[in-house]
């Protein structure tokens, strides 16, 4: 017993857990993959999530599974697939998850949307979805919409944030927007920040956050 030269595939011991065994695997059809997403076996669901990306309507199937999937590894595979898929169905489906009661699902959806918004081909599909999220009656959904903007390279991000701090009535939505303005704010944000301080004059947190943002924005 000692160091032995291994094989990458791990079949040196004849125990390789290749998904399709030794014979050449036949690519699964889209119907099989869709069925695989609902399998009782987590490993099958995970493989289906990774394979289904090339199939039509993959977005809808993945999102619907995501909403009830309990296994973290399968959720991770589904989220990666949705980001790779990068189409309007994926974007809309993820946006829908922001209304979920499930904290983990919400945060995963925010993170995936951030990635789509940052660089995806469908980054163009994100702004209209954001606009509707920012108008949602639930302040938490509006907060999550601001969270999504964090990694956006869209030139209008500052304008949207300014609109939030000028018009949103909820303190925590404004607070979240101010946090991001510390990073992306320019001189254009100065007056709106001052007005925000006046609007929440007795809220120490807003005073603090706006002061910090002003300091960052004014730095030359």
């Amino acid at each position: 017993m000692a160091l032995v030269r291994g094989k990458a595939a791990g079949d040196a011991a004849g125990k390789a857990a290749q998904p399709a065994g030794k014979s050449k695997p036949k690519p699964a059809s889209c119907a099989e993959l869709a069925a695989g997403l609902e399998s009782a076996d987590a490993a099958v669901r995970r493989h289906a999530a990774r394979g289904i990306v090339l199939c039509p309507d993959a977005g809808a199937a993945l999102v619907s599974r995501l909403k009830c999937e309990q296994e973290v590894a399968v959720r991770a595979a589904i989220l990666t697939a949705l980001i790779r898929l990068d189409d309007p169905a994926a974007t809309a489906g993820l946006a829908g998850c922001l209304r979920s009661e499930d904290v983990a699902l919400r945060n995963e959806a925010i993170e995936a949307l951030r990635e789509l918004a940052a660089s995806g081909d469908s980054a163009g599909a994100v702004p209209p979805v954001l606009a509707s999220l920012l108008a949602d009656p639930d302040p938490d959904v509006r907060i999550f919409a601001v969270n999504v903007m964090e990694s956006m390279v869209h030139p209008d991000v500052e304008r949207w944030l300014i609109e939030v701090i000028e018009t949103d009535s909820h303190i925590n939505v404004c607070a979240t927007a101010v946090d991001l303005l510390c990073e992306v704010g320019t001189e254009a944000a100065i007056d709106p920040l001052v007005r925000l301080q006046a609007r929440f004059v007795s809220e120490p947190y807003i005073q603090f956050a706006a002061e910090l943002a002003l300091k960052r924005v004014r730095e030359i």
């Binding site: 017993m1 000692a2 291994g6």
Partner: peptide, 15 residues
Amino acid sequence: LEKWPQINEWDVEII
């Protein structure tokens, strides 16, 4: 080889 005494009892593969 130098620091793990049990190397004599196990096969180890490094890829």
